[in-house]
Design a protein around this nucleic acid. Structure first.
Lengths: 229, 229
DNA sequence: ACAAATATAATAGTATTACTATCATTAATC
DNA sequence: GATTAATGATAGTAATACTATTATATTTGT
């Protein structure tokens, strides 16, 4: 099976890194390096040393390190959507489809050999720790116009359509879904670093607990037959 | 009525800014400047120019700009807790208390003359745009040990205790509350910048809609008498 | 009122970052 | 085999996030 590649928004990069060796090394190593150092401490210089290349060469692929981060996180959401498609394609009941999406969202991430040069485990830690930094900038509006957040928005829209299929009268579909997508990662961060803010345990069972929490929040809200519905 | 001051964690500052004129100018102007420039573009040098002082002087109050941000946001959560106390003190029913807390959380923020040198409207915009940056760092664990996040954790704990009073069997109190505290601000950000991710409108009614959303999520989850409870 | 202590200002300096520019070299392609 | 394009090597710049030193106010205790 050939290595697949996602078609990501043009504005994310200057030169498409998926199609060259250097580009793939940039993706591969930046995931590991950002995971290790954190985005603040990560620099193109350090990355260049890591892959035996130069700062200048990396700048030919990405305008700056922020765009690279946005690229990686867009890649992650494309991957999420791709997995959601795979696992829901055979399912008909929208309730079950929605549950499947939440499972994919909450599950522990493992290396996916379909995409050779991306370590999804490390990438997931990056998403947990850095996702918010992609849009919490003074440039959001411009970046949004360029379509840089398309991956996340697409996953959100997909799940929103399931919610509306299940309950067309539910008033807060978009808010509920964006909340759940973000809190899924946030709660894992809390489990590791601020345990008093979460009901998840720090052990391996947390992924199941996380799923239960998300399922609870989502289905209680959209199925509620009380005055809060 | 005298200007009140919050007792914030010692580790947030080197010299307590609430007790000196320069310190108060630092707080006052940093709120306005971070709001205007965003945290990334904000520097102590620019702040020094703004208040006709020097970088070196500001460094005697705060170790670095990150601590100043954490300080301001801790101040915000202290203020939130203070307001929640005020408005819930006369209420007995825990359901009503919880609703009141959510109202305080979701309401539009206006200048509170009790605290002369803090512009709460601008500070709220900072919380919306920068909150996550306070803990999404490689230093979280150390900062947490120092107690830098006490303000947020305290508000969270207070609301968790209400949730548990209402339904002692609910399994996800901490996760639900931290999710709600964070999403309240996040949804307002989306309403301004990424409207496809939220069910709030960008107009002034969004604060009421936000409250409805939060009430819906919280009460559906904790009162659900279905299999998801 | 005066000395001592402390806070602030003024100024300078440093390592690092986030780039940009130039030119040489290697590799791919036509 | 020549042309084009990608990469590497190197240098340079403005800004940032500090630290250090000394001078000057301002406050405080006696």
């Amino acid at each position: 099976m050939p290595t697949l590649a996602f078609k990501l928004n043009d504005h994310l990069y200057l030169r498409d890194p998926q199609h060259t060796q250097l580009g793939q090394k940039i993706i591969h190593s930046s995931v590991l390096l950002i995971d290790r150092l954190g985005f603040e401490q990560f620099t193109f210089k350090k990355l260049a040393e890591e892959i035996d290349s130069t700062e200048a060469s990396i700048y030919r692929y990405f305008e700056n390190k922020h765009r690279l981060l946005v690229y990686l996180i867009a890649w992650y959401w494309n991957w999420m959507e791709y997995r959601m498609e795979i696992f829901t394609s055979a399912v008909v009941d929208p309730n079950e489809k929605l549950k499947t999406c939440l499972r994919v969202l909450a599950e522990e991430k493992k290396y996916d050999p379909t995409f050779e040069f991306v370590n999804e485990e490390a990438l997931h830690r990056i998403v947990i720790a850095e996702l918010d930094k992609t849009y919490l900038t003074k440039g959001v509006d411009d970046h949004n116009k360029e379509g840089l957040f398309g991956g996340f928005k697409s996953v959100c829209a997909k799940i929103v359509s399931l919610v509306k299929e299940i309950n067309p009268n539910y008033l807060f579909a978009e808010s509920l879904v964006s909340t759940v997508l973000i809190t899924a990662n946030q709660q894992l961060f809390f489990a590791s670093h601020l345990p008093s803010l979460t009901s998840l345990e720090p052990n391996e069972n947390r992924y199941n607990r996380l799923y239960s929490f998300l399922e609870n929040v989502v289905f209680c809200s959209i199925n509620a037959d009380n005055k809060y519905a």
